[in-house]
Each structure stands twice: as structure tokens, then as C-alpha cells.
């Protein structure tokens, strides 16, 4: 329950972090440390060098631009929940993040750490897909933006290269009238999700659904975007029954596995229940906005 020996380097600029990362083989970045340190305590992770980026202040900001909001990778879950800007444009974020572990963990854990860890049952990877974010990463020679759909590859595997650092996440503002919802089922408060779902539905002036993002997590090697269901409801009138889709088209797109908490069958059942609940609550929100 104690980590194996490692060297430590505290950096205060992105450049110093990139230098250290590119010149050491078995180096790991530490931000909040809420996933890495348990792994180190169990000796599942044994890095030779820990590069502490938690004191790089320029990565902690929320910046509003005309078409998007950009959040630094070191923004903690607590600061994201409390951000007035994020609450204004993306209320789904604070709603979903209240499910991230516990109060004290949320004080330390960061958005960048959470998406680099890429747990398919955690909340940030779902939000990144739900909100069509792009992830800005930097290496010594290059800066690139990775779209949400390309970033997550498998269980704890991302598109991030060994010499790259996540700098920020760009969240595009939603232009149309929209409704959102997030639902999660977990064994206890703060536990990992068994299944989590997020829905955003956008409508045009004539109440026709123009765009839909329907995302499910915890039931596959990564968070899954359910394109089939999205295509099913795009073009429908918001007043129609949006949950008449064939349940099989959900089940063919997800591959849950049984574990100590729940069987494969239960996870499939729960997926359908939560999806319908999520779609209907996003719809309800649009209807109440229309009546205002």
C-alpha cells in the first residue's frame, strides 16, 4: 500500500513539463492524482519519474469566446461545478459532475486527468462526447486538436501520444433551442456508474428536431455515441413519441460485461430504461422552454 520509489519534478510552465516528458522514458504526469496515486499505492503503476503539473496556473482557467468556451485541463471538478460560465451555457456539466466520486475527491480531481484516464464509466468522457468537444494537446513540436469521437479509443486508452499534454477542452456553444439530461445509476452515492446516459436534443423553429446527441457509458470499452437512435429522432416533431425505436438497435451497439455488481442482462435492461428516461427528460425540458 505504499508506492515504489520514484523521482519527482515540480514544474510551473507547460514548456518545462514537455521538456521533462520528452526526455524521460517512464514518466507520468500528476494533476489531481485521484486515479494515479491509488494505482501507485497498489503498485499497479510504477513510474520512474512523477512530473507534477498541478502548479501550472495557466491551465486552470475558464475562457469564454464567441462560439465556444475553453476550459483548462487542470480545472478541478469542484471548480467546474461552481463555474458561472459553464452553468450558463452547459448546465449538464455541473449536473453530471455531482456524480464524480465524493466532495473531497472532486476538490482535487481534474478534467484533464479524468479524460486522460479514460474510464468508460466516468462522467467527463461522456460529457466530452455529448457536448462535441475538441481536446487541445501539445507536444514540444506540435499542437493539435482532437475531436471527441477520435480521442477515446478503448478502456483507459486514448489518442494521446506519450510526449503530449492535454492543454484544454473547447466546448462549442449550442445555437438552437435545446434540452439536455444526464442520468446515472451506481451501487452507492459516488461509486462508479453501472450505466450513465447523456442526451442533448436541439430543435428548429417549427419544433422539428434538428440535431441530437445520445451517449451511453459504462457498457462498452469506451463511451458510445448511439448514432442509430440519433438518426431515428432527427426530423421528428418534438411532440411525437421519441422512444418508439427498436430496442435491438441499442443492444447491438453496446457490449456490457457482467461483474460483481450487475449482470450483462441487467446492464442491457438498465441501458434501455435510462436511455428512454434521458430522452424523455430532455424532451420535457424543451416543451417547458417552448411554453415559457
Amino acid at each position: 500500500m505504499k508506492p515504489s520509489p520514484f523521482n519527482y519534478l515540480n514544474v510551473t510552465t507547460i514548456e518545462n513539463a514537455l521538456d521533462a516528458l520528452s526526455s524521460n522514458d517512464n514518466a507520468r504526469l500528476i494533476a489531481g492524482g485521484q486515479s494515479l496515486v491509488p494505482m501507485m499505492n497498489f503498485r499497479l503503476a510504477q513510474p520512474d519519474l512523477i512530473i507534477d503539473i498541478s502548479n501550472i496556473n495557466e491551465l486552470k482557467n475558464v475562457t469564454e469566446e464567441k462560439d465556444y468556451v475553453e476550459i483548462g485541463s487542470l480545472l478541478t471538478h469542484t471548480n467546474a461545478i461552481n463555474s458561472i460560465c459553464l452553468k450558463k451555457y452547459f448546465p449538464v456539466i455541473s449536473n453530471a459532475l455531482k456524480n464524480v466520486a465524493h466532495h473531497t475527491i472532486r476538490n482535487q480531481g481534474t478534467v484533464g486527468g479524468s479524460i486522460a484516464n479514460a474510464d468508460p464509466a466516468s462522467e467527463w468522457p461522456l460529457l466530452i462526447n455529448l457536448l462535441d468537444c475538441s481536446i487541445k494537446v501539445k507536444s514540444k513540436k506540435n499542437t493539435r486538436e482532437i475531436p471527441a469521437t477520435k480521442f477515446f479509443e478503448s478502456h483507459f486508452v486514448t489518442n494521446l501520444k506519450e510526449n503530449e499534454i492535454i492543454i484544454s477542452i473547447k466546448i462549442p456553444k449550442i445555437q438552437n433551442l435545446y434540452g439536455w439530461s444526464f442520468h446515472e445509476e451506481s451501487p452507492r452515492e459516488g461509486d462508479f456508474a453501472i450505466v450513465e446516459t447523456g442526451v442533448i436534443i436541439e430543435i428548429e423553429n417549427n419544433n422539428i428536431i434538428k440535431n441530437a446527441n445520445i451517449i451511453i457509458g459504462g457498457v462498452d470499452e469506451k463511451v458510445i455515441k448511439l448514432n442509430n437512435i440519433e438518426n431515428f429522432i432527427i426530423g421528428m416533431n418534438i411532440n411525437e413519441d421519441l422512444c418508439k425505436f427498436d430496442e435491438k438497435i441499442v443492444l447491438t451497439n453496446i457490449h456490457p460485461i457482467s461483474d460483481n455488481h450487475s449482470s450483462e442482462e441487467y446492464k442491457k435492461h438498465l441501458s434501455i430504461v435510462l436511455l428512454k428516461k434521458a430522452i424523455n427528460s430532455a424532451k420535457k425540458q424543451i416543451l417547458s422552454k417552448l411554453n415559457d
Binding site: 491509488p38 507534477d52 465524493h102 473531497t104
Partner: peptide, 27 residues
């Protein structure tokens, strides 16, 4: 527990609570 689950080791760092088993002394 020494892996951030039980909360017994909670302290405040710069006024904010943290699990002390998930921070290194050097930090």
C-alpha cells in the same frame, strides 16, 4: 484504506479538503 475510499486521512491543503493518502508529502 490508503487508496482514497474511506476518508479517514482527510486534511485541508490551502483551505480545500484532500485525501492525504492521495498526495505525496513533497507536494
Amino acid at each position: 484504506c490508503e487508496h482514497g475510499v474511506c476518508g479517514s486521512c482527510t486534511i485541508k491543503i490551502d483551505g480545500v479538503t484532500s485525501r492525504s493518502c492521495l498526495k505525496f508529502a513533497v507536494q
